[in-house]
Each structure stands twice: as structure tokens, then as C-alpha cells.
């Protein structure tokens, strides 16, 4: 089994590096992708970052060719392991200095650096070390133990897919969909769902009371609570009846069960309370 692993490692690693290397070397969006990586900051130049990313791709392609064509020589394996160590160092540096930067690991990905990127780079190191120990070419090994080789390839490909966020749409999303189908929707509503405060505010903002009080209201929602069957929504405002502006609390009270789905014309109580005296201000907002 150990020899099977080391003998097939060049094939797996070769295909992986060929795919990611081709993406980096010839991908159309590499320039845009490079712009999101930490390379730009290190090299201080977007074009140079693109060139570095493309050359890395070319190196990956050369190593991949070596792994696939001359699997029993140690040089390609060691080169691949060195590449993996380089990736790990780069990821560690980027993660430490610019955690929001993009990984730039594969051609498609422009997501931030996650643990999956580290695992993948780690696998390149391990794979490279294993490939360096290959004694039999992978094509001979494949002919000798076809079923074991196939099983090994399937399992390792699955592991690689699991650590590549690029491939999520192929397996992870369908898996989640199936889980919902089997176990049902996890967000079933509770027995008596309260109307969210945001829905009351939404209803208020579409009401005539809001339009009438708009010249007074100066803030967003400051506080809310329920009392005596009403939901109170508190705003801050300025009441300026005769040029003498005074700060007021604008209080709206709405039916806590009403939403814009249940009523078009909500009944809304509007009160202005003088902030200095705490006395209600007598004012006819509709006048």
C-alpha cells in the first residue's frame, strides 16, 4: 500500500499542479486576481505581481511535466515539495500581514485565505515528498493493481476537491440541497411568531403619521418597547413652532401585530414630549 501511494503520488500531484499552473500561467483574469493578493503590496506594482503569479504558474507546469513524465526520478518530487513549502510560507505571510487579501492559489479562486488553502499547500509538500520516493512509474503501477489504484485516486481526488473552494458548486451545494430535502428546512417558524420591530418601523414609515411628523423627526429609531397593547417607537426630534427650536422626543405607538401585509392604513399614535420639561407638547401635526 505504501508503495502504491508513493508510486501514484506523481500522477496526482502532476495533474493538480498542471491544472493550477495552467490557470495561473495562461488564465485571462490573472491580472485582476493578482491585484487582490499580498504580492501587490510586497512588489509595489500590479504588473510585477501578475508576472510573478504567471511565472509561478510556469514553474508549476514544469514540475508537473517532470512528475508525470519522469515519476521515478527524485528531482521533480523534491521540486514539488519545495513549491509546497514556498506556498505555505507565502500563505502564512499573507495571512499574518493582510488577512483579507486573496490567496491567488488557483486560477479561479479570488477568495480570502482560509484553512483550506493551508491544507492544500500542506498536501503539496506531503505529495512532493511521497513522489520523491516513487520507485515504479505510475502507469506500470496502474496496470499492475488497477482496482487499488483507482480506489486510491478516487479517495485522494475527493480529498483534494474538499479542500478546493473552487469546486464547492459541484458537490457541496448539491449536498446541502439534498440534506434539506431529507431532513427538512431547518428554519421552521415558531408557534407564535412575533412581528419584528423592523416590520413595525417599516409599517410606520409608510404611514400618514410618519409623513406628518417627518419635519420634526431628526433621528433613526432610538428605542422601542411594548406596553398596554401598543408597541412604542421612540425617535428624537426638534419642534420649532415659532422660531424657538426645542428638543423633543417623538413617540409613535402602533399595533404590535400589524404589518404592511395586514393593514394599509395603520392606526398610529403620535406624541411629542418636550425633552426639557418631559411634558407632552400640544401640536396638531396634520394642521
Amino acid at each position: 500500500m505504501a508503495s502504491l501511494t508513493t508510486d501514484l503520488a506523481p500522477l496526482l500531484l502532476g495533474v493538480l499542479l498542471a491544472a493550477t499552473g495552467a490557470g495561473k500561467a495562461f488564465g485571462r483574469q490573472v491580472a485582476g486576481q493578482a491585484a487582490g493578493t499580498v504580492l501587490v503590496r510586497v512588489l509595489n506594482d500590479g504588473r510585477r505581481a501578475t508576472r510573478v503569479l504567471r511565472s509561478t504558474g510556469a514553474v508549476e507546469l514544469v514540475v508537473a511535466a517532470g512528475l508525470l513524465a519522469a515519476p521515478t526520478t527524485t528531482v521533480p518530487g523534491i521540486a514539488a515539495a519545495a513549491l509546497g513549502v514556498g506556498f505555505l510560507g507565502y500563505l502564512g505571510y499573507a495571512r499574518a500581514t493582510a488577512p483579507e487579501s486573496s490567496c491567488g492559489c488557483t486560477a479561479r479562486s479570488d477568495g480570502p485565505i482560509t484553512w483550506r488553502a493551508f491544507v492544500r499547500a500542506g498536501l503539496v509538500v506531503v505529495g512532493g515528498a511521497a513522489a520523491a520516493g516513487a520507485r515504479t512509474p505510475w502507469w506500470t503501477q496502474g496496470v499492475r493493481h488497477p482496482s487499488a489504484s483507482l480506489a486510491f485516486l478516487v479517495v485522494t481526488t475527493a480529498v483534494l476537491a474538499a479542500v478546493s473552494s473552487d469546486l464547492d458548486h459541484l458537490w457541496l451545494v448539491p449536498l446541502r440541497r439534498t440534506r434539506l430535502r431529507i431532513f427538512g428546512h431547518p428554519l421552521v417558524p415558531g408557534r407564535d411568531e412575533e412581528v419584528p420591530v423592523a416590520a413595525s418601523v417599516e409599517l410606520l414609515e409608510r404611514s400618514l403619521a410618519w409623513v406628518a411628523a417627518a419635519p420634526v423627526v431628526r433621528s433613526g429609531l432610538i428605542d422601542h418597547w411594548e406596553a398596554d397593547g401598543w408597541r412604542f417607537l421612540q425617535f428624537a426630534g426638534v419642534h420649532d413652532p415659532d422660531g424657538a427650536a426645542r428638543p423633543v422626543t417623538v413617540l409613535f405607538a402602533v399595533d404590535p401585530r400589524a404589518t404592511k401585509d395586514t393593514t394599509d392604513r395603520p392606526a398610529v399614535r403620535v406624541t411629542l414630549v418636550d425633552d426639557r420639561t418631559d411634558e407632552p407638547v400640544a401640536v396638531d401635526l396634520l394642521a
Binding site: 404611514s207 400618514l208 403619521a209 418597547w225 412604542f232 395603520p266 399614535r269 403620535v270 418631559d278 407632552p280
Partner: peptide, 26 residues
């Protein structure tokens, strides 16, 4: 403060709504 505001509001608030405004729409 909430209690104070509640009583002020329930005491003498203007009610704006269908009942007070009849057929007025937006």
C-alpha cells in the same frame, strides 16, 4: 423614562389613522 413616555403617549396622543382621517390615502 419609558414609563413616563408611555403614560404621556397614552394620555393625550393624536391618533393618526384610518379612523381619524376617513378616506384619506397616501
Amino acid at each position: 423614562r419609558r414609563r413616563l413616555l408611555t403614560s404621556a403617549a397614552l394620555g393625550g396622543a393624536t391618533i393618526v389613522g384610518a379612523s381619524a382621517l376617513g378616506g384619506l390615502d397616501a
